[in-house]
Amino acid sequence: MSLQVLIFSLLAGVSILGALGVVIARNPVHSAIGLVLSFLNVAAIYLIARAEFLAVVQVIVYAGAVIVLVVFVTMLVHPDDLPEFHGRRPLRVATGLLLGGALLLEVAAAILTRNLSGVPGPWTDQTISLIGGNTRALGQTLYSDYMLAIQLTALLLLAATIGAIVLARPEAVSERVMAARRTLTISLAHPRGLDQPELPPALPLPPDGQVKPAGGGRSIVLARSASEFTEQPAWGEWRTP
């Protein structure tokens, strides 16, 4: 066993441990830490495989940007009220493990019995160093042979950016009221709101001026004002049974 294999095995082992941490950890923040660990080790493995540029990209994009984004969102949503705190589903875990084990066996069998041998390409270490390093070689390939793909990727990223802006944009008040009224009846000037101070009093009229009658199995929501109603993301708490 050469030194190279040894280093590879160490890095791979830590990477797999990190991945296992992602799956096992209850707290999503811990998961994110496991993910970072896995990504950093994979980046080191890239260095062994002489893919220096990709290793750097892995660190910056994956271990950097994406993880920061994930942790950020994790903090935005309620970190103290995560589903796994309320228990897992044993049957699903068993099924998942069974399927995972089966696939692992199959893939391992396929890998270990493989007799694929491709034709070696021209990019040996000598040619790469001749051209001036991995990054330069990659850049030349990308911007010559894969020009169209690069352009399309740029377009994709642009579309993703616009999509994210649209998704994350705060909804207009009327839209949120409309969305709420699809499933709920918003009670306006409900008498209980007046004589019971602990219950929020009524909303002003919604923008379309229509008040739907309560009933038909729909929940009634009470709110002091429109902004209070719409700013409160957890209006589910106000659902009357």
């Binding site: 990477s15 994979v42 998942g96 995972g100 696939l103």
Partner: peptide, 8 residues
Amino acid sequence: ALFIIGMV
């Protein structure tokens, strides 16, 4: 290994 851990 990583793929299957992710899948599980």
